[in-house]
Design a protein around this nucleic acid. Structure first.
Lengths: 340, 340
DNA sequence: TTGAAAGCGTTACCAA
DNA sequence: TTGGTAACGCTTTCAA
């Protein structure tokens, strides 16, 4: 327990202690059934007793497999403000769990790193076996470069967007549709879409929104799109400015994320606009704190737990040279107090 | 660019291509000044041209150095609810940046992993060179085990708590003191401390709170401590229950985190209690969304950027067998709208 | 069911 | 300023 790293024990050392060959110890510690069960167990016990761990650098070199997956947060702006979105942490956390379950570890990185050739940096160098990118961002250039290189890759983003790599994500179009329909069924007539339609996922949500508006034969669907970055702060400012300039020209808001909804809610509350009576508002994501907003936020839930599991499955498929595919996840309306 | 991994290029291959020895290429790619500048540059160019990357598994084996740091989120409960605190993500993000700057990568893990002997799992196995633990949690058992093993270790927690390892953290006592004093100077007479005094950092904040109360000669300091877990939801319920049972027996709240403050604010707002006039409330952390709360949250800011930098410095000191130490960071009162 | 030995791709010592 | 070569610690083929 209190040993220093002088003369660290190796597989060979352990083998000598046990009076067997290194092959046997190696197999035993890897639980290889070739080795008799009793030998296996006694060697495993010996290893534990001596606090021995296989040297991963060595085994990775030998097996050409790292059992590591690089997870890259594809941040949108330079301000790394977007990292403050709790939704991303949730995805990372769930990925970590799903990876561990399959015997992989998570090497965390983000798009602001110096290196820009991700496949080369992570895969060719044997730092990781595969890459999971969270977020397509506005530019998919780097992601496509990885895909071209043939490196195992799964992306969290919008699966409806055409791509030559596997994308896992929610049914954003349906989410936007459901959200809008919910507001309509609550009696909203002039519904504002608040978000950035340039962004792949958001643009799909916007499509669903437009479709619902059209189906309900409401007017002005285009006028009522307020483009805004996906942070609370920008949403707060945009809504504040808009109301100041044009008055309360809407009675419902479809926000592209819960954080955006939070910003919008604040701007409205400061003007004593009642939620949900004057303006109903619905978010997207269902972050843990959504129900702690005041009023508790109605939202479209993304199932990050399943998403993580599926992303890992798809990546493992690629490791095994099996077919991989994009997967669309269902979304769920969570009705709370911010809508009627 | 579109090469598959058939017959991957190695250092030896590149050396042959260039007509020099492997030693030379190795040194050139590591920017070793022993090699003539021109040779170095031309070899680096050749490597880039062939999309060559050094195999890290091999160099790690050879150098006995991984250039990886394991970051362990020491979560408190089993529900992994606490991972939804944006403050933690901020710390991880800042650590990632600070590590990258020094040429290290971040292997993310959490205390729910199967393995419980962290030093063995990460260090003896050459998965990482050092460990950074975020949060002391309630039990420091696992952390102390790492410290005993002699593995390079830095902990984010409360530096005032006695420990045999390096702890970096805010001056929590001072933070609690400043927060409480601020409420007192705003005219609050019955100030509630909302948080979990069992938890190392929180207990220090509570000490500062008590001190400020005593100095101001206010009464009932003990009665006004409401023990609660560090999530919004629990805070919401606790405050709701307390007000229901005893009425509005306080006019100020010192919350142990911004998320706790969020929960408390919701409970109060639901009862039409005005913030800050009926009850002033101050948080801790200064998460990005604190200013987006309604009203914008007054809070004690923790400087995670500096913290991350210092943690990495302290860890590097240990790598270089230099002295390491615990470091206390200053905290700053950020006055917003939730207090008078 | 176990063992001997080659080899994974680097780095660094020693020599030139 | 460069090259030859051993060694890092493991896994796995082949042989016993």
């Amino acid at each position: 327990m209190s040993l220093s790293n002088e003369n660290k024990l190796t597989l060979a050392g352990l083998a000598k202690l046990a009076g067997v060959s290194t092959s046997t110890v190696s197999r035993a510690l890897n639980d290889n059934p070739l080795i008799k069960k009793e030998t296996r167990e006694s060697l495993q016990a010996l290893a534990k007793q001596h606090n021995f761990s296989l040297n991963r650098a060595a085994s990775r070199l030998r097996t050409q497999k790292t059992n590591v997956v690089a997870v890259i947060l594809n941040l949108i702006d330079d301000t790394d403000q977007s990292i403050s979105d709790p939704f991303l942490l949730k995805v990372v956390g769930d990925l970590n769990q799903a990876l561990n379950q399959k015997g992989y570890e998570l090497l965390l990185s983000n798009s602001h790193m110096a290196q820009d050739d991700w496949a080369n940096y992570f895969i060719s160098s044997s730092r990781a076996d595969g890459i999971i990118v969270i977020g397509q961002g506005k530019s998919t250039e780097q992601v496509e470069k990885v895909a071209m290189s043939g490196a195992p890759l799964v992306v969290w983003g919008d699966p409806n967007t055409k791509s030559n790599y596997a994308v896992v994500g929610s049914n954003n179009d349906l989410g936007g549709y459901k959200a809008t329909q919910h507001l309509i069924s609550g009696g909203c007539k002039r519904i504002l879409f608040l978000g950035d339609p340039e962004h792949a996922e958001m643009s799909e949500r916007h499509k669903g929104y437009s479709r619902a508006i059209k189906e309900a034969k409401l007017d002005n669907s285009n006028e009522l799109t307020l483009s805004c970055d996906i942070t609370s702060k920008v949403a707060y400012e945009k809504i504040g400015d808009a109301v100041l300039a044009k008055g309360l020209f809407f009675d419902g808001i479809v926000a592209t994320s819960d954080m955006v909804a939070l910003g919008a809610m604040k701007a409205l509350k400061e003007r004593y606009i009642n939620i949900p009576n004057d303006v109903s508002i619905i978010g997207f994501d269902d972050i843990a704190m959504a129900e702690l907003f005041h009023p508790a936020l109605t939202t479209i839930k993304q199932d990050t737990k399943s998403a993580a599991k599926i992303m890992v499955e798809q990546l493992l498929n690629q490791f095994n040279n099996q077919a991989t595919k994009s997967v669309v996840l269902d979304v769920e309306l969570i009705k709370r107090m911010s809508t009627r």
